[in-house]
Design a protein around this nucleic acid. Structure first.
Lengths: 332, 332
DNA sequence: ATGAAAGCGCTAACAA
DNA sequence: TTGTTAGCGCTTTCAT
């Protein structure tokens, strides 16, 4: 690696002391205007680039935000990562990324990697199976700023950006009931996640509010992937549902595939609704009714909260709720 | 930020000099076995974590790989980022990410951000509109390791991981011809990208090899998103194609949507084929014939080439070609 | 086997 | 307004 110019190189060229150069570059008031100009010119000429290791070593701060997600390649998470990256960019931060692959072990390593890289703060969505939060507690003990989003850790006292899963589920189920569906099934996710429990609660509450009974046989649990939708549909069909409310769009996609294979007409014989408003939801046939969750707003909120923490704004921790919006399409 | 323990803290606790501690921690041979043990124990006790700023400052090296992609949230790129991240993890590197949003301006900023963060190396796919490569030349001039993938810069002398676009296109078009389709259209991408030109070449070569003429009206150019497929289908329909070979699956999805809206039966009246084998390709109705490109292999190759460069292996730059494989599904 | 000294590039405090 | 000194945490060289 050919070494790049340092402030000392600039100083030598200009017969100045490197501290003067340092001041000039950082617009310190105590520096002659003409000196500053020559310094800036020389810096440009020598392609000077401040050394992050040196500034980091002195300040013990970095301009890097760490993101930890379960799976980078999922539509929802990749969108959020994209939004976070854009927002971070706007505010002068770079982004470091890790994925837990939905395992607590990897998640622990992810956290360790972030801390070892001395990131300015961490934005995280926990993995499905995380039940011990010691690694996140350690982040807080080191007073490294931390913001959870989507899949939050309720036990941890820090900022959170949460979706309105309950409200979203209520909207979907009410919509299905309004459309005349009566045997509404729920292809749920793993109950270890609060968002899954909230959707379930919204589902049962709305059924009961409308005088419909909750049939346990119409509730199945799985994961967030298409195969879980396929499997869920198979388990539900013997109980003759007339609508499927799926925990997310990927699951809805799998369920839709299975139902089509069985020759069902959607939405005439069975309706399907998802959650997340993945990009494909509008391109499948029939297009999928789902709940949109304002990903841009979510990503920005996460970054903004984190930066407030980084900047040391003294304030109580906050939980931001992102609004859900029902998107009605052809599948219901 | 509560400061973490340093080697000096450990040294003080143990009445040793910090250099001895440093040696002990790095398994230097010149250190008493019992001393090493007590040092390791104390390091663990104090939650010692080496300071990356200090080691970076001394060594002028980091253990961070930078990735630059056009759009993080596209199925293809997010998969590749995921694969790269996994591979980097295995080899002890962390990953920093940027997206150009398909604009050269942002791409230039991305490169600057990576260099300013002193990453160990950069893995990049260039944006559609990048025509000047000065920013990448600068990377090479600073002898920062650089590997292009998918969308490569031919003018830059460095490692490249390329897809076999030509071979993939040949397979798709030959398959369509074998299935009896004769008026095969191509919804192409922007010709600024070599991968797009290679697919186009594979398309025309295969038509001609089979004694079919190339009808310019059956070739349209656009981008990589569903809307470009919708638009492409509209422009092609007046010329009565019986098959559409699309530049990627997203475009195929859009085209499929448009054709369905027009009441066409797929694949009876019109066949559709894509490229990339996005996750949804198997879930749409009808499932989409496409070309798979071994994303894991691609991500690993990119990381492995980069790490070879980082480790200073003296060797000529290489171009790795990733095999394409036709995936026949219901849409043809 | 351990310690001392020096320096990576930068900035803050103090001196001139 | 500019220069001097010192130190962030670490490793390398040389001395003991």
């Amino acid at each position: 690696m050919k070494k790049t110019a340092t402030i000392k190189d600039i100083a030598r060229e200009l017969n100045l002391h490197h501290t003067t150069v340092s001041r000039a570059l950082r617009n310190h008031p105590d520096v002659n205007e003409r000196t500053r100009e020559t310094v800036l010119k020389m810096a440009d000429e020598l392609n000077y680039e401040p050394n992050v290791f040196a500034t980091g070593l002195r300040s013990q701060k970095s301009k890097v935000i760490g993101i930890i997600v379960p799976e980078i390649s999922h539509d929802f998470f990749s969108s959020i990562v994209s939004e976070i990256t854009n927002r971070a960019d706007e505010t002068g931060y770079s982004v470091m990324i890790c994925q837990s692959n939905e395992t607590p072990e990897r998640e622990i390593e992810n956290v360790a990697a972030m801390l070892s890289n001395r990131v300015a703060g961490i934005i995280a969505a926990i993995s499905v199976n995380t039940s011990c939060y010691e690694h996140f507690e350690r982040v807080l003990r080191r007073s490294t700023p931390l913001v959870f989003f989507d899949r939050v850790c309720h036990e941890c006292d820090t900022d959170k950006v949460m979706l309105d899963f309950y409200g979203g589920a209520v909207q979907v189920v009410q919509h299905l009931i309004d459309q005349g569906y009566r045997r509404i099934a729920h292809v749920a996710g793993p109950t270890s996640l609060s968002g899954v429990r909230e959707r379930l609660q919204g589902y049962t509450d709305t059924l009961q509010k409308n005088g419909l009974s909750v049939d346990e046989r119409l509730i199945v649990h799985g994961g967030f992937l298409p195969e879980h939708g396929i499997f869920g549909a198979e388990k539900l069909l013997p109980h003759h549902p007339d609508a499927l409310f799926c925990v997310d769009d990927q699951v809805a996609l799998g369920a839709m595939m299975r139902l089509r294979a069985e020759g069902f007409h959607i939405p005439e014989q069975i309706a399907i609704a998802g959650f997340d408003n993945d990009q494909i939801a509008q391109y499948v046939e029939p297009s999928l009714t789902t709940v949109d969750i304002r990903r841009t707003e979510m990503g920005q909120a996460a970054v903004d909260l984190l930066i407030e923490q980084i900047c040391g704004k003294k304030r109580p921790f906050r939980t931001v709720r992102i609004k859900s919006e029902l998107i009605v399409r052809a599948s219901t």
